[in-house]
Each structure stands twice: as C-alpha cells, then as structure tokens.
Design a protein around this nucleic acid. Sequence first.
DNA 1: TGCCCCGTGGCACCCGGTGTCATTAGCCTC
DNA 2: GAGGCTAATGACACCGGGTGCCACGGGGCA
Lengths: 200, 200
Amino acid sequence: MTAIETAPPGAPAEGTRARVERAALDLFTLRGFEQVTTDEVADAAGISRRTFFRYFATKADAVWGDFAAHVTRLDELLAATDPAQPVLASVCAAYVEVNDYAVAELPLLRERMLLILTEPALLAHSQLRFAEVDRVVARHVAGRSGTAATDLVPRLVAATTRAAATTAFEAWLADERSALGTHLRQAFAELTAGFPGLLR
Amino acid sequence: MTAIETAPPGAPAEGTRARVERAALDLFTLRGFEQVTTDEVADAAGISRRTFFRYFATKADAVWGDFAAHVTRLDELLAATDPAQPVLASVCAAYVEVNDYAVAELPLLRERMLLILTEPALLAHSQLRFAEVDRVVARHVAGRSGTAATDLVPRLVAATTRAAATTAFEAWLADERSALGTHLRQAFAELTAGFPGLLR
DNA sequence: TGCCCCGTGGCACCCGGTGTCATTAGCCTC
DNA sequence: GAGGCTAATGACACCGGGTGCCACGGGGCA
C-alpha cells in the first residue's frame, strides 16, 4: 500500500478525514473489518497510525461518518414536528425523514450499514452510537407526554422505534432494489398498530 | 491479591468457573469493568490469565453466566406455547416466564444486569448475545406465521420485544423494590397495544 | 511401570488504543 | 525578514485484551 498524496506536517490537511474514511470503508468491505489493521488503513490513507486515532477515537468510528450530525438533525426534526399529531407518529415521521437520503448518497449508506449490521465488532459498537439516538427520542417523547425521560414509556418508544428502524435497514440491505423509506414506513406501521400482520 | 485455594494442574477443577465468575462480578462491581484487568480477575480466582481465557472467550463473557442455557430455555418455552393464542402474546409470555427468577437468584441477576446495561463495553457486547435471542424469537414467529425468519415481521417482533424487555430491565434496576415481571408485563402491554399510554 | 490425556501456566506475539515528545509548516508580530 | 506561537503530524514506548505454542504434571489405564 503506497500513500496517496501524503500531507505534509503542519499543513491544513483539508479532506484528510474523508480520505481516511474512504480507505477504511474500502478495506473493510473488501477484506472484513477484523481482518484489516488500523496500520493498514492509516497506510492506505497516507497518514500514521497515531494520526488515525486523532481523527477517529476507535477503529469502528471510521465507518460511521458524521453520525453526531445525524443525531442532531433527528433532534431538530423532532422539535419541528406538529404537536397536534400523536407523539409516536412524530417520532416515526422524524425517523423516516432523517433517513431520506439523496440517491447519490445511497451507495455509501449501503456500504456503511452493511458493515455495521454484518460485522460483529461493529454491531456491538453500534449499540453505543444508537444509545445517543435513544436519548434524543426519549427526551422528546418525555417532553411531549409530560413524563420524565427516565420513565418506562419514553424509553420504550425510543428503544422499540429504533429497533424497528434497524430491522427496516436490514430488510433494505437484503433487497438491493428496494427503497429504504418503504421498509421504514412498513416497520413503523406494524409497530404502531401492534403487529396486525400476525392476526391472519 | 493472593490466590484462594489454588487448584493443582491436572485436577478436576470442579467449580472453578463459578469461582471465576464471582471474582469477576465482585471486582467489576466494585471498581468498574474497564478498570479491572483480566490479570486481576484471574489472580483473585487463583488461576492464570491464560486459563481465564479458556473458561471465557472474552472478558465480558465472565459477566453473563450460562446465557446459552437461558436462550435454550426461551426456545423451549416458545415451542411449548399454546398455538391457539396470537404469536405475539406467546412471545411476550415466554419472555416473562424465562425471566421469572427465584427470589434467591435476584441479587445476582441485578448485579449482572446492572453491569451489562451500565458499563459501555458490556452494553456493546450485549448486542452480540441478544442477537442469539433475536434469532430464536424470529424463527419461532416465522414458523407460526408461515413466513421466513428473514422476513420483516418476524425480525421486527424479535427486535422490538427484545428492546421492550431490555427497557423493562432498566426500569427494574432503577427501582430497587419493584418486581421484574411487573415491568416486563407493562412494557409488553404498551408495545402490543401500540402505546395507548401516549394518547392522553 | 509406562503410557496417554488433559487441564494448566508461561511465554511470545498481535492488535487496538493512549501518553509523550520532537519536528515541521503556516502565520502573526515586531 | 527574523523570531515566536500554534497546530498537525509522526515516532516511540507502553498498556491491556486475546491467541498460538509448548512444556509440565497429575490422574487414569493397560
């Protein structure tokens, strides 16, 4: 692996993070997350191992992109929902909207989510990232329903809607040609109606 | 840390695993999971670090006890449910029953679950163990509903009921004097009814 | 007595992650 | 234009989880 346009020290290093993400995604997809060392990723991105860990706190974080921004956007979408409609509907709508990606971004999203939901180490790590989402959702439900964010119902809504969203992602990944929004809407419909599909 | 009754090599080593579990649980609870090294756990249990990793594949596994047996029992309970009642009700009932612990076991369960749901590293690891549960549940739902275990609904039921159960566990841990079964039943009631508690 | 089996411990090694320090480039000021 | 500050980088040493390998030693068996 030879370095691609090695950045000089002290330089602005614009776009280094994105370059590392690409290198990591490529290698992980090609050979598997655990089979690739951080040394190899750093090398492919033209930086040192030490610098890799300055851009990403953990090896797993290189797969997630700017997830914090994603969570922030979900939070904003929740805050902007119509207070007249039921809370649960607001949460589902916000989930659908925050996952309404442009067509050009879909291949990257597929690559990321395929790794996250397929590789055991990344699946384990996902719990920590998704916990941030749960907190945001639970806080919103609590605010809207006049309860505490630590109460059962707000946390229940957060945990189950997130589980439903994750399952929808899995279904989307399994079907190359389907639309993510369709799976999300179907999953939320089943969930909010108490799984009527099981009463055949 | 001095060794407690060091087992001689070649000996049957009866009860060693249980002794290691106790030592691990004690140390993790006392000082935190990440702050305790496997060397210390092994030392406290009177074995070598190398032997620790023969009893437990990972440091986290020392907290889980015989979880595989737990999953097997859930599987059996699911198989024994009344086929006449709705599948979702069967799953919830099996969840409640598999978590109906004897009073004497509750302190140990509390200690385990508090660690698992509180320590980030253990929370991440839990996703891997819970995935086994999800597979069992999804398989049962698929069998009962005439669908494939990879379809959306079976996986949805597995993921959301498990999320509800985990949330119930959190509520139980937060309230020292409450009964686990109560939280589980309440969580499942909310879930299967589509969260009627939010329509105030 | 001699043999095999197997649980064990010791050792070296890999890899993820962290603290520390020296280097270097860009920039700002005098 | 020289000097000094800042920030990104890389090299190095170190820690801890996890693994492969081998040697030991006791119990059971022929």
